[in-house]
Design a protein around this nucleic acid. Structure first.
Lengths: 175, 175
DNA sequence: CAGTAATTTCAGTAATGACTGAAAGGAATG
DNA sequence: CATTCCTTTCAGTCATTACTGAAATTACTG
């Protein structure tokens, strides 16, 4: 299987961007490949296309599955697993955000709450540290609250919301 | 300089979270330390507190400065540079988002636009690839549009907006 | 313009993370 | 139930990134 130059370009770029977000380059490349593909792909084909080891694909697919954005589809007359990713970008975004929140924000919330509690209990704590931790906690809580509201919208409403863009400040009487 | 246990806890956690976001652990720890500190700190003190090499602090501070969230303050009677970070979490958030956008989203936009253009020109391109790239481009453009609107709000308005939370869908007639 | 203090650079080393090939494990087929 | 095909696991290797200490540079002071 050989790639169109445009597809290759996108896949390579996606891989590089992945590394900046703490996502393994190969994992991101596989994701990009599946996103562009019009049909589910078996592991060996992915390996050949991206020129990586078959075992590497196996591990990376696992990672993508743990994120919930890749699943297996059976193909009639073929014993191999075939993999496909979501095609709805909004849906994909939502799933990824959920997962990132779970992995990166929720633990922080837990720690922040514990820290704030600890500090509020023993009175001789440094007042400055206390203030900063309170502020940080309040910030993270506001943000996650906002996120969970948006996240709760059905995809079309979410898309409409995002696309409202410049009209939002007026509609909500901000600034 | 020795840390309160709560502060230490927060700093260590912040460091770990940093690594998940592609930020060097030490860089994130220094940031956390400066955030909690009530006064600007000189490099050697940071090094001692976090038990890392002085030179490591130098490199990390540079990194934080390149993000625009740490700056040097002169201290009367002390020849050493003292460093401090922003204390307003909303402001800090905005600066970090700007920087991430510049480093991680804008290059993607460029590539996506080039890809879409390339594909639209030569007619024999795979229609599926074309569709997916168009959708992705539209998505990223919507998101950056939304972001730039919010980003344009003065900090207090931005905070109000985020804190509106659950009332937003009704106010905007979503869902 | 020494002499001292602070900072940055850099080359080497340590630590971490990614990738591979070989081998083991599982499922379908004759 | 043995063979084949496919997938996963894992130990070892390779590559990348982080960290350090020494040396070079820069900035201050008397």
């Amino acid at each position: 299987m050989n790639l169109e130059p445009t597809a290759e370009r996108f896949i390579l770029h996606w891989g590089e961007m992945g590394t900046r977000w703490g996502i393994n380059r190969t994992v991101a490349q596989i994701h990009a490949l599946l996103y562009l593909s019009d049909k589910p792909l078996p592991a060996d084909e992915i390996a050949a296309t991206l020129a990586v080891a078959r075992s590497n694909v196996s591990t990376s697919i696992r990672e993508l599955q743990s994120w919930g954005i890749v699943r297996t589809v059976p193909v009639m007359g073929d014993r191999r697993d075939h993999f496909q990713t979501l095609t709805d970008v909004w849906e994909m975004f939502r799933i990824i955000m959920d997962e990132r929140k779970k992995r990166e924000i929720d633990p922080t919330l837990t720690v922040l709450r514990q820290c704030v509690q600890e500090i509020d209990e023993k009175k001789k704590a440094d007042p400055n540290t206390a203030k900063r931790l309170h502020e940080m906690l309040e910030f993270v809580e506001s943000m996650t609250g906002f996120y969970s509201t948006v996240r709760g919208l059905p995809v079309p409403a979410m898309a409409r919301f995002v696309k409202m863009g410049k009209r939002i400040p007026k509609l909500l009487n901000l600034n």
